[in-house]
């Protein structure tokens, strides 16, 4: 079941309806992601693109009111968030939370241990883990100092996002969901984060990249671009769709949909 073959669907979202506090956010989303692909989900603010990423990761405050999601053929929506993570779903948070007093190192070790145990792999010794961590840290040019501090506490916006990408590299997911990882990043941080993604990207994993701006797609070339407006995907295409959007703005599509 965990064997991935290129071009086999890792994620199938079928007519997904999602509400939060009785307000419908996703109104029938369909999306198929194959192994080895990068999908960009673009859309204006409030279109539901972050909701999609969070629902797939299992954030509890959303209610799924209809539809189905298959992940590696499994019924994803019935799985606990931690089980989804252990099965290879990773969410890079738009707003990574701070965990006062919880040392980053301990948190990362606990996370890697939980995932390795689930996969039936042996738990890494401290030395092995440190070696792995050093490797991954370098991908995003993160200071050694940061892993000694409390998780995200006192981190700058850019450091938090780099920390997310470092965790992604460390956990080696099958499906990575990036929720507006580019928002609030300066050009250097954006480059570092994008390079991090490119290093992790392979023909054994897949990415869903949620973004408001086309900018990050200059660094990470998507295979597909989908535009989400008012809870539905209104247009799908290749890389060029993002450029067209940048040119004409979301209003252009909204108008087209209306017609």
């Amino acid at each position: 079941m965990t064997q991935e073959i290129k071009n086999s669907p890792v994620l199938e979202v079928i007519d997904l309806h999602v509400s939060i506090e009785d307000k419908e956010i996703l109104k029938g989303v369909n999306l198929t992601v194959n192994i080895g692909e990068v999908h960009a989900i673009m859309g204006p603010n409030g279109s539901g693109k972050s909701t999609l990423a969070n629902v797939l990761a299992g954030r509890p405050e959303y209610t799924v009111t209809g539809g189905q999601v298959l992940y590696k053929g499994m019924d994803l929506l019935s799985m606990l968030p931690e089980l989804r993570a252990r099965e290879g779903i990773f969410l890079a948070f738009q707003y990574p939370v701070e965990l006062p007093g919880v040392r980053t190192w301990q948190f990362l070790k606990a996370s890697v241990d939980a995932i390795r145990q689930h996969r039936g792999e042996k738990v890494l010794s401290v030395r092995e883990f440190d070696k792995l961590l050093d490797e991954k840290r370098e991908i995003v040019e993160m200071d050694t100092d940061l892993v000694k501090r409390s998780v995200n506490e006192g981190f700058s916006g850019g450091e938090k996002k780099r920390n997310e990408i470092m965790q992604m590299a460390l956990l080696d997911p099958t499906l990575a969901l990036l929720d507006e990882t580019d928002s609030g990043l300066d050009i250097d941080a954006l480059r570092i984060v994008s390079e991090g993604v490119n290093k992790v990207r392979s023909d054994k994993n897949a990415f869903v990249l949620v973004t408001h701006y086309q900018r990050i797609l200059n660094y990470i070339t998507p295979d597909y671009v989908h535009v989400l407006v008012d809870g539905s995907i209104v247009r799908s295409g290749g890389r060029e769709l993002a450029l067209e959007l940048e040119d004409k703005g979301y209003e252009w599509l909204r108008d087209q949909v209306a017609v």
């Binding site: 299992g58 954030r59 968030p81 931690e82 989804r84 993570a85 948070f93 965990l99 996370s111 939980a114």
Partner: peptide, 10 residues
């Protein structure tokens, strides 16, 4: 949720 999303049980 952040911790759960990293594979750590509730």
């Amino acid at each position: 949720f952040y911790l759960q999303q990293r594979g750590i049980g509730l």
